[in-house]
Design a protein around this nucleic acid. Structure first.
Lengths: 198, 198
DNA sequence: GCAGGAATGGACTGGCCAGTCCAGAAATTC
DNA sequence: GAATTTCTGGACTGGCCAGTCCATTCCTGC
């Protein structure tokens, strides 16, 4: 019930909608713009997304959520040394600084959740997976003794994620990168400060 | 050019719009809802805000920005001891946890800036003032020797603000309070860890 | 090659909502 | 108390845009 051609069209729609969402934000996103950008007719759009705008946006949100994490690979899943942490940190910051306000996270965190109830669970799921990866990284460092075992991995990871979210938010709204950098560096330095063999 | 009666009406409009903004968010805010809530007619609305919705929202945003800081007083301006920091922290978190998603910050940080260009400068101004207060607090602690003079006050303040923003964002979108708490506590503990007389 | 489903194009509808306009009431000023 | 300004109510307009509908064309299996 979906030919190869159809699959391609569907893909094209999601691609276009993703770009449109990043550029304009949820509330300014118009189906007509997606149509213009992708060269797809209204009939097609509702053929592939019978639930209309909401269904389309949900598909976009799901993709973006995956993108956020896969953008951080392979570093995020391998936080096993200070050098690895540094590389992850550099990649993360570079990514968001480059993206400026065409930012996937911005779309997810802004009012999107409020507009599309189903997006809420996608978001919490993303945050959970993210936190889990970081916790794993911290535990690993504790096992090798490079981080004190007294550190609460879960809380530290939570604070790191909050710092990233806030940093990105401030980056997109003020254009300044130092909030994001300071937040991430501060948490990592805190981790280093708790080194069990100084 | 504004009678006492007029001033009262204007006030009533801003009040209603503020409540409406917190409940619904920028993109879902309807002038008709503000009218219904405040019992004000369309003619009045455009009489007091000739620029229409945008002008009204700008007025609301300005008020909210002031509110964010004054909510933290008198603690924010008096971060002169660890106990004071603790009280400030408690007040801040209590405030946001109580507010849930009827949150002034959410309105300011979300897509509001994008929608209302003039709001951007209100926001950066708010962040600047906030950061300045925190920096002052840290410097004060350094002078009394309770925080090492090696600490970069500006960067630490930036990381604290980023953590708060992210924490609040995650609080409103996931309902979990631990991101905000962890973020704030982590920065403060980091500050304590740099105590120059252990 | 033909049936039936998949894919496409685009005209049309209907609701929503910001913003306009003006007429009349209430106040302020002199 | 007349003139002028401010204030108020609400009907009306016009544009925008999601969603509907259907006619047509394109596949695909048999």
């Amino acid at each position: 019930m979906l030919t190869a051609k159809g699959r391609r069209t569907l893909h094209r729609i999601v691609d276009g909608a993703t770009a449109e969402l990043r550029e304009r934000g949820v509330d300014e996103l118009r189906l007509e713009d997606v149509m213009a950008r992708t060269g797809v007719s209204k009939g097609q759009l509702f053929h592939y997304f019978p639930d209309g705008k909401e269904g389309l946006l949900l598909a976009v949100v799901r993709r973006e959520a995956d993108q956020v994490l896969s953008d951080q690979e392979p570093y995020l899943s391998d936080l096993t040394s200070w050098m690895a942490w540094q590389r992850w940190r550099d990649r993360l910051i570079d990514r968001y600084v480059r993206q400026g306000d065409r930012c996937p996270l911005r779309g997810l965190l802004g009012d999107t959740g409020r507009r599309i109830p189903a997006a809420q669970s996608v978001l919490t799921d993303l945050i959970d997976r993210w936190q889990t990866s970081i916790v794993t990284g911290i535990r690993c460092m504790q096992e090798t003794g490079e981080v004190s075992s007294e550190v609460d991995a879960s809380r530290t990871a939570a604070s790191l994620i909050a710092g990233i979210q806030g940093g990105v938010l401030l980056l997109t709204s003020t254009g300044r990168t130092d909030y994001l950098e300071s937040a991430v560096d501060n948490v990592i330095e805190g981790l280093k400060g708790h080194c069990s063999r100084p």
